[in-house]
């Protein structure tokens, strides 16, 4: 698991326990990796960001049993946590797929040829993992009100890398 050890504004503040069971070394001898491309601006436009928050607001207004199978409505604090996290993450990531879950949480998902990331926001906790197509699965969780500021930058480097950025991000995680 990651531990937040220092300033949340520093990418080196995330440390990864070597004993974490989901960590496996990257096999660089197998098939060639996807080639990092020159990265266009990942950050969505102001309009797209507004639309994402509006979609989130719509999700927050779902009534109990919104899926017909007994789903829970979204608590106001869960919605607030999700809005806050989304604002921070969209500074460095493209728009995620935003999905309400039957237990009253909200999922943000990003997918690329390099893997996928899933952040689930709850009332008091968040849960996250990034699963790399050619590498480790990296888990992270913590208080919902304090999703690390650097998470977006690190996920961007892993899933939407420019040359060298993915290695740097993985090295950072491995420290």
């Amino acid at each position: 698991m990651f531990q937040l050890t220092a300033s949340s504004t520093s990418i080196t503040s995330l440390s990864f326990a070597a004993s974490a069971p989901m960590w496996t070394p990257i096999n660089v001898q197998s098939a060639p990796p996807p080639t990092p491309m020159p990265r266009p601006q990942l950050r969505p436009s102001l309009y797209q960001e507004f639309a994402a928050h509006r979609h989130l607001q719509h999700i927050s207004n779902l009534a109990d049993n919104w899926d017909g199978y007994g789903a829970t409505s979204i608590h106001a604090d869960t919605a607030r946590n999700a809005h806050r996290a989304l604002t921070t993450l969209l500074l460095s990531l493209p728009l995620p797929e935003i999905t309400p879950n039957s237990n009253g949480t909200i999922s943000f998902e990003w997918q690329s040829p390099f893997g996928h990331a899933n952040l689930e926001m709850g009332l008091t906790r968040y849960s996250f993992f990034v699963q790399l197509a050619r590498g480790p699965t990296i888990p992270l969780d913590g208080p919902a009100a304090s999703v690390p500021d650097v998470l977006g930058s690190v996920v961007a480097a892993l899933l939407f890398p420019v040359t060298g950025a993915q290695d740097t991000a993985l090295t950072t995680f491995a420290k």
Partner: peptide, 17 residues
């Protein structure tokens, strides 16, 4: 089973996902 209003821990989240 998943709790109301809270996400499962990352390992369970990954399995369920």
């Amino acid at each position: 089973a998943i709790q109301r209003n809270e996400p499962p821990p990352p390992d369970l989240l990954q399995q369920l996902d």
